[in-house]
Amino acid sequence: MVMCFIDMNKELVRIKGKGGRTPLHLASEIGDVDILAELVLACPDSIEDVTVKGQTALHIAAENEKYEALHLLVYFLKKNTKRDASKLEYKILNLKDEDENTILHIVVENKEPEGRIDWLDQRVQVNQLAAQEN
């Protein structure tokens, strides 16, 4: 039913509810990658939305240990062809929430095995180098 509404108006993905959460935030919290993919494809700009705590959908996925959802969102950022996509990717991956935590901080805090975060750590490092060059 949600997708029917989104088909009518894609900006509904960005409607904020309690705590400034959007449907994208909620989908990342429960880890439903099918709905998450539909939402981010319907409204790519929604990946920039933050809650009142300064959290993106990526923060919420990491906080709730929904690593498949987190991986999907990072993949979307990586494959984004929008103008200045690399700057957006850098911004989102390095954005700090109200507790000054980036996505990588949250993943490490959850004590995930190193192999599961290598892809995120490498992506953040590459983006930091790219930003320094610009």
Rank of each mutant, 00 (worst) to 15 (best):
Y75D: 06
F76W: 08
F76A: 07
L77Y: 00
L77Q: 03
L77C: 09
K78W: 10
T81A: 09
T81F: 05
K82L: 11
D84K: 15
A85R: 13
S86P: 05
L88G: 05
E89Y: 05
E89P: 02
E89D: 04
E89H: 13
Y90S: 10
K91W: 11
K91P: 00
I92G: 02
L93W: 02
N94D: 03
N94P: 09
L95W: 10
D97H: 03
E98D: 11
E100I: 11
N101H: 12
N101F: 14
T102C: 08
L104V: 07
L104R: 10
H105L: 03
H105K: 06
V107K: 04
V107I: 13
E109P: 01
E109V: 13
N110L: 08
K111Q: 15
K111S: 13
K111A: 12
E114V: 04
E114P: 00
R116A: 11
R116S: 09
R116G: 02
I117C: 06
D118I: 15
D118T: 14
W119A: 08
L120Q: 07
D121S: 13
D121I: 15
D121V: 14
D121W: 12
Q122G: 00
Q122P: 00
R123W: 04
V124K: 06
V124T: 06
Q125C: 04
V126T: 06
V126Q: 11
L129H: 14
L129A: 11
A130H: 00
A130V: 15
A130R: 06
